[in-house]
Amino acid sequence: MSLIPRSRTARAHILFLAVPILLFGAFYIYPIAASVRLSLHDWNGFSPDQRFVGLRNYAALWGQPRFINAVLNNLAWVAFMLTVPTGIGLALAAILDRGIRGETMFRIIFFLPFTIPAVSVGAIWRWMYEPSNGLLTTTLELVGLGGLAQNWLGDPDIVTFALMGAVAWWTTGFAFLVFFAGLRNIPEECIEAARIEGGSDWQIFWKVSFPLLWPSTIIVLGISAIDAMRLFDVIWATTKGGPAYASEVLAVQMYDLAFGRFQMGRASAVAVSLLVLSAVVIMPYIWYMTRRVQDAEVE
């Protein structure tokens, strides 16, 4: 029961929301609408006339191996981001949670790469992957496996895997830290009770700890999926999508078409395709998060 007239509170709420909603309209809704419109036109970015071409930009894209390759790369990145850094992060968190000496040091080391700018990750790993003197090749030669050394970033068949290695190094720390904090939040009694029941460490982890980690898991998975769809910086700074477009994702292709070749219509069509792909992958997550908030309040 509120002592303040409802209308006054409601008016204040609307005032508070005015600026964020205006900015959201100006920087999200308007540009998205403009991009969708632009994707139906042919335009070089300078000339005063934009020629309407209907869906021809999309039709052209779907006939191009370059576009299909980028879509497949995006899907591969989603699958990768949801599993590899997440899995390694969970494993490291579970191992470190057993109470090991030097815990703080390990925690800092695992987390450190996550704080680095994507372009710096790119710069560092260009040097690690340098085909003749890089760390990877040098290490392989040192242990007598020089034959396995590759032109890591120059071979179209390998380049995406090489980039994934760099990204795993970069983002695992995030999953690790969130899982680690989540494990620390689990009440000791739950684990003790399971131990008294005679569960092995392995059983306790999967039957007791892991389900209780759900809030951490959902954060890590959601952010990983979002990052995978937005992935641009690392690829741009490391390979620019090369060699021969092999490592391109839609974001990189869009940038090349728009600001490298001034095909604004075609580039917008790539961007719209990316938005649709992203919506399909991530919308269930956003929906779930909104719903869950409501549920929590009903309680």
């Binding site: 632009l38 979002i226 937005r230 839609l250 961007a271 938005l275 909104t290």
Partner: peptide, 14 residues
């Protein structure tokens, strides 16, 4: 919240 799923490429040119 839906803004979180928007890849920034869709706003880049405008």
């Amino acid at each position: 919240l839906t803004g979180m799923l928007v890849p920034f490429q869709i706003v880049q040119i405008p």
